[in-house]
Design a binder for these strands. Structure first.
Ligand code: NAD
Ligand code: NAD
Lengths: 232, 232
DNA sequence: AGGCTTTTGTGAACGTGTGCACAAAGCTGA
DNA sequence: TCAGCTTTGTGCACACGTTCACAAAAGCCT
């Protein structure tokens, strides 16, 4: 389940505060989910709760870490050391959660060789060797969008089976390779969408404020602006 | 719908290549979704397709932009100009999609005053005034996690109703305020989870490789490692 | 002009995820 | 030891999103 990391974070915070046990209600509130959902998620891992008491925090941290595969630490490689690659390389939050930045790579020979966060940026030529020697199985793509598919293909060919993609492109990969994407523009656009909804017919019923309009105007400009992009 | 931005991106690419029309099949492939799903999503906006031909690319771009509220451009403020805030400030990909970085803010007086990407970083003291004067309605939080909730509260108090949060915390906000989060650690943990599944019982049936074990051992260490975190 | 091909729009079945509600289970205190 | 209280684990119903499949519509070719 994709919510386990959330629970793990909340549990870690409790653990650091020395809290010995939590009820599903408390933990659910901390993670921002429904308590029944949380209990069902946890029961999927097995029955690790005590009725009338709750869950043992330390034990649950261990069980979830185990389920997520965080008892080992995963070497990750970051490809494309520009603005974003820099920020990720300097970010200390990975190491604390079972991930280790094993290598920084870039195609630009002016970038390769630089020291960033105590590591030397390697050139893409060394990709295959690095993946093999350091057993890297997770790759992070922070190259410009046009280069992303090519980089992805090379990563897959080198044996990487999990990719985190920051470039705004749909990557196609063979079966057995997992891709997750982080796309800021999409997040902002979704926010803008809701923002527009809010400001549309604020006082009255917030139902379908603008979407009902276009159907009413058969061929002319729907709202009077930008008619030049209308079809013939 | 959260998929509209994806369609919009694919359509923009087609538009730049001068393609006049697309079928739902082609567009679905480009966006990485099912064609029936795509048609249903688009039909939700109204009937903008021609049977036997497909959809007019330019027209659809306009309609989706309109639905998402991208015909206007949204001023955003970035709070916390550290590693990540820097990268976002330098990123050119926002402007091209209807977003404008209106202000950079930081609580550190050593950071405020610096010029980044042609803008002067402002101090948090000016937050309320900036939000009011520039009509900022979207805030991006890139401060350390412990500061996030406090910053969030100030943003909300200042009148911001949409927040994009990069700090690994659950933000609580009053009703009417939208929060979306981007959490790298969670993404990596999900990848690690699948990665572990793949490598677990690779040749045989990949069913529930490790989860069935703990129930069999009533009180001892479940698999022999890390017994010190087991409960009493 | 009329049939043929292509592609949309949508009805209906399906699967999944969510949340309520409650019985069973364990702890606590008398 | 036993009653009472708290909290888990889960059966069940419901709502949502996804996918198939097909009829209606539009263009095209003869
Ligand atoms: N900077 C941000 O805040 C931000 C935000 C959202 C999305 N993104 C996306 O992240 C990606 C990177 O953004 P950025 O601002 O860091 O860009 P950037 O131009 O600063 O950095 C890109 C780096 O990738 C390297 N590179 C180019 N082609 C390569 C290849 N084939 N193999 C290996 N390395 C290669 C370049 O040498 C450069 O160092 C882009 O796709 C961008 O759209 C960035
Ligand atoms: N750097 C990354 O690649 C990365 C990746 C994932 C998540 N994150 C998260 O993003 C956040 C920022 O990361 P970073 O590496 O940029 O951290 P950073 O320490 O480099 O930057 C944080 C900035 O926030 C400012 N700040 C602190 N408290 C503030 C407040 N109350 N109001 C306004 N500004 C304040 C600091 O002055 C600093 O400039 C963190 O929560 C981190 O967990 C970062």
């Amino acid at each position: 389940m994709a919510r386990l990391p959330l629970y793990l974070r909340a549990l870690s915070a409790l653990s650091e505060r020395g809290v010995p046990t939590v009820s599903s209600e408390e933990l659910a509130a901390a993670a921002g989910v429904n308590s029944a959902k949380l209990r069902k998620d946890l029961s999927y891992l097995g029955s690790y709760g005590t009725r009338g008491v709750g869950y043992d925090v330390e034990y649950l941290v261990y069980q979830i870490s185990r389920e997520l595969g965080l008892t080992q630490d995963w070497p990750v490689a970051i490809i494309g050391i520009g603005n974003l690659g820099h920020a990720l390389a300097n970010y200390g939050g990975f190491a604390s959660r079972g991930f280790r930045v094993a290598a920084l790579l870039d195609a630009d020979r002016a970038v390769a060789g630089q020291r960033i966060a105590g590591m030397v940026v390697r050139h893409m030529d060394d990709l295959e060797q690095i993946v093999r020697d350091d057993h890297v199985s997770i790759g992070v793509i922070t190259t410009p969008a046009p280069a992303a598919q090519g980089v992805c293909d090379r990563l897959v060919a080198a044996g990487i089976t999990s990719i985190l993609n920051f470039a705004p492109t749909v990557l196609s990969v063979p079966e057995g390779v997992d891709v997750r994407k982080v796309d800021l523009s999409i997040e902002l656009q979704i926010l803008a969408f809701h923002e527009q909804r809010k400001s549309a017919v604020d006082p009255a019923a917030p139902d379908l404020p603008a979407a009902a309009q276009p159907a009413a105007s058969p061929a002319g400009g729907p709202a009077g602006d930008l008619p030049e992009v209308m079809p013939a």
